[in-house]
Design a protein around this nucleic acid. Structure first.
Length: 690
RNA sequence: GGCUACGUAGCUCAGUUGGUUAGAGCAUCGCACUCAUAAUGCGGGGGUCACUAGUUCGAUUCUAGUCGUAGCUACCA
């Protein structure tokens, strides 16, 4: 371990106040909590803070829909989030909110400093505007027909059918999701943070070891494509903070969200009478680290440090980035019931099972972590109950029955205990580098050797021989001391088990007195410290999650990253077992399918998958359509003259090689197994499919 | 398609700065034990370390390619 400042601020990403905490969020908070508890155990001054992220359009819209105030909604959600984190033993020193006076104050101060130093620019941009609600619409709040593939009901930024990206203004028949009104283009002044000015600074900052090298490579892509100015303002009405010096401009939620770290910290410091401003100084000797998911790396590795630096403040020392949680090897899926809320989990399981399971798989890298439920059950039972707690269980009975709960004054195997305490540095290094899986393996290895020790000594044999009581007492005392060391090692992961064990052993479990053996003292009679779990509870939890489905569907998210994960979720559902939704005849009638004759068909040379068709739709109408079926039809000329079925009323889509004015239907599993649909002889160009 | 990761026992994962018979836990089989929440210990079976080619005295470990998976991205309406 290198030399460190003694004061440390640790944060987790602020959960958005528009949805419940789920097991994906929990991973991050557990990872950080374990880190924090370990640092505290070493005696560092740690401040572990978090907050709810409460601003933005989604919150505002949700409030309107429910006929309530945003403040009302975020207050409720904040309570729920606090409860969930407390339920998982996340030991925040302070959990606050972004809709707070401190956050307003710091956000304004950062902004005005940046503005005065020339880092803010004002530009006019055109945006879709809802004339009924009198508000500008984020991409997500505009829907319409995809200009490329003519799929209906697509969001304003990209199409979920064809994956095309576009501007909301490109949509055909756009409408506001909020009012249903047709949005109009309107100009408005926007405030931009001049990120490109920080190009050199950011490169240095990233190269200095603040983020893992593997991620640094990824960031290089962003630098290569050039940093862009960042739009930090939103027009009224907006639920957030008004920008100083403006009439109707508000800070974009992602501007004040990371500031929420500092706001939470300040609120806490103020309550303790400690100077917060010292912490923010550029030469502050304290340390600041953020635990985040890889989906928000963009905000934390570019905007956030640039803002702080630009305003003359200290910057984060480390970003600890983790991957996503998968369940049973697949993305969390609402329809499979593997989209599990924190509260739902807690109804069925002890939080420490998940803390332990996650820890046993965390390696400090950004790989995704799989919560394999049968494995979760097996691992919890075998490691925690069968191995670890069993050590106490199998020896404590003798101490209680034969020695009135009193431990021996000497050990039977002091060298064994020494070998346990000698692992201290190795364990500490595991916590420090967040390679929890390695340290857990080490601890379980020691637990195995402790069980082996008990087997060799056969205390149950000695117990039958009154003449060997002293020996028996020393052996059990040794084993309980081994247990004490192991549970101390794991106390950052299993705080509750550690507390219960401390009560059982009637001692404190602390890092610095590890090597002082517990001798001659009394312990409590052993009671089960940890219960086994079973697959039935897993099934019950899955069923509960399926019940939650409806509530969750109301959940919305704010950032592009979370939107993408929703998209992924959707994809996962499509490939899963879920039965396709049934549609009515009316739904079908919305599609205008027609027979068309292939006039010409050729490869698009620069494309790997595309064929370009000219189609005859009858009455002299022709359409150009691109179709990604080159892999199955390597000889496109052979298709000329045949009939195909196309979607006639699909919105045209601009592609790199021209406009695609429809979609040709085919069946098959993909690649070479793609087969064009056609009609029997007699069909004429333009005939409708019904 | 491009870029970046990853691909090690049935499952979840270690590991190898290139070097004798590749590891753990769970699962499975056999034996032992009975103190313990039907826990524990010992032993066995199980892997061509994705595939192919190359560098090397020697590759699971390095290089290239192929296939597969994931992420980002692009043109697959």
């Amino acid at each position: 371990m290198t030399e460190q400042s003694n004061t440390l601020l640790v944060t987790c990403a602020l959960p958005y106040a528009n949805g419940s905490i789920h097991l994906g969020h929990i991973l991050e908070h557990i990872q950080a909590d374990i880190y924090v508890r370990f640092q505290r155990m070493l005696g560092r001054q740690v401040y572990f803070v978090c907050a709810d992220d409460q601003h933005g359009t989604p919150i505002m819209i949700k409030a309107q829909k429910l006929g309530r105030t945003p403040e009302d909604i975020i207050g409720e959600m904040e309570n729920e989030h606090r409860r969930d984190f407390a339920g998982f033993e996340i030991s925040y020193d302070h959990y606050y909110r972004t809709n707070s006076p401190e956050n307003r104050e710091i956000s304004e101060k950062l902004y005005t400093t940046l503005r005065d130093r020339g880092y803010i620019q004002v530009k006019k941009i055109s945006q879709l505007f809802d004339p009924e609600k009198k508000m500008f619409l984020p991409d997500r709040f505009v829907k319409g027909t995809c200009p490329k593939c003519h799929a209906e009901d697509q969001y304003g930024d990209n199409c979920e059918c064809c994956g095309a990206t576009y501007s909301p203004a490109d949509l055909i028949n756009p409408r506001s999701v909020i009012s249903g009104a047709t949005p109009v283009m309107q100009e408005s002044e926007h405030y931009f943070f001049d990120l490109p000015q920080f190009d050199a600074f950011l490169k240095d900052w990233i190269a200095s070891g603040t983020i893992p090298r593997e991620m640094a490579n990824k960031l290089q892509e962003w630098f290569d494509s050039g940093l862009q100015q960042w739009d930090i303002s939103r027009d009224a009405p907006y639920f957030g903070f008004q920008i100083p010096g403006t009439e109707n401009k508000y800070f974009y939620v992602w501007l004040d969200a990371p500031v929420g770290y500092l706001a939470s910290f300040k609120n806490f410091m103020d309550s303790k009478g400690i100077c917060f401003e010292d912490f923010l100084k550029q030469d502050s000797d304290s340390e600041m680290v953020h635990f985040i998911g890889k989906d928000i790396l963009y905000f934390h590795s570019l905007f956030w440090p640039a803002m702080l630096h630009g305003a003359g403040c200290r910057v984060p020392d480390h970003l600890y980035v983790h991957g996503y949680v998968t369940v049973n090897g697949a993305k969390m899926s609402k329809s499979k019931g593997t989209f599990i809320k924190a509260a739902t989990y807690l109804k069925h399981f002890d939080p420490e099972c998940l803390r332990y399971y996650y820890a046993s798989k965390m390696n400090g890298k950004i790989d995704d972590l799989d919560l394999n439920l049968p494995d979760f059950v097996a691992r919890t039972n075998s490691d925690l109950v069968n191995k670890l707690v069993n050590l106490a269980s199998r020896t404590a009975v003798f101490i209680t029955r034969k020695f009135q709960g009193r431990l021996a004054d000497t050990l039977d195997a002091p060298e064994l205990l020494e070998s346990f305490t000698a692992a201290k540095e190795e364990i500490a290094a595991g916590y420090q580098s967040r390679e929890y899986s390695a340290l857990i393996r080490k601890v379980m290895d020691l637990a195995d050797s402790a069980n082996r020790y008990v087997d060799e000594k056969e205390p149950w044999v000695l117990a039958k021989d009154a003449g060997r009581d002293a020996e028996l007492q020393r052996i059990c005392t040794t084993c309980l001391n081994l247990y004490r060391v192991l549970i101390t090692y794991l106390s950052p992961v299993l705080p509750k088990l550690a507390r219960d064990s401390a009560a059982f052993l009637k001692t404190d479990l602390d890092w610095n007195s590890l090597d002082r053996a517990l001798l001659g003292t009394e312990i409590s009679p052993f009671k089960a410290l940890f219960k086994r779990i079973d697959m039935k509870s897993v099934e019950a939890m899955i069923n509960d999650s399926l019940q939650d489905l409806k509530d969750l569907s109301a959940q919305e998210s704010k950032g592009s990253a979370s939107r993408k994960s929703e998209k992924k979720e959707k994809k996962a559902e499509q490939s899963g077992e879920a039965a396709p939704e049934t549609v009515t005849i009316d739904d079908f009638a919305r599609l205008d399918l027609r027979a068309a004759r292939v006039i010409s068909c050729e490869e698009v040379p620069e494309s790997d998958k595309l064929l370009k068709f000219r189609l005859d739709l009858g009455n002299g109408e022709e359409r150009q359509v691109f179709s990604g079926i080159k892999s199955a039809y390597p000889a496109p000329a052979a298709l000329i003259g045949r009939f195909v079925i196309m979607i006639y009323n699909l919105a045209p889509r601009k592609m790199r090689f021209g406009i695609s004015e429809g979609m040709i239907l085919s069946a098959g599993s993909g690649n070479k197994d793609i087969f064009l649909l056609s009609a029997d002889a007699g069909v004429k160009p333009g005939d409708r499919v019904a």
